[in-house]
Amino acid sequence: MKLLLGVGAGDDAGAALEAVVSRAREADDDLTVAVYAGDGADRDVETVERRVRDHLDDLRFGARVEQVDGDPGSQLVELAETGDYDRLVIPGGTRSPMGKIRLSDAAEFVLLNARSSVTLLR
């Protein structure tokens, strides 16, 4: 299966990568990681990309890494369609101090607009 994982600066990229890579190993999935700055993030996209590449190296797993420019949600959906991906995978949001789940703007857009199946990681 061809998987597209979207990871923004505000997401827990490490947890998302570990979950996706362990599944991808079992199922022999082809993985692309799309990285973006995302919601009110103080880190730029280069930092996110570097962390994702380092983490993939640590996991010893080969995957393409691409930067997404502009609005991440719509760009992820576009990339999934033009790249003929079977599934889009997105982090399931962060938690507020109260423990409420907060989806990123990108996650909300992907859930409402993607034509492929979507996996929301929890």
Partner: peptide, 10 residues
């Protein structure tokens, strides 16, 4: 607590 009154995961 009623399941339908749950909000945003809590």
């Amino acid at each position: 607590f009623h399941p339908e009154d749950r909000a945003q995961g809590i």
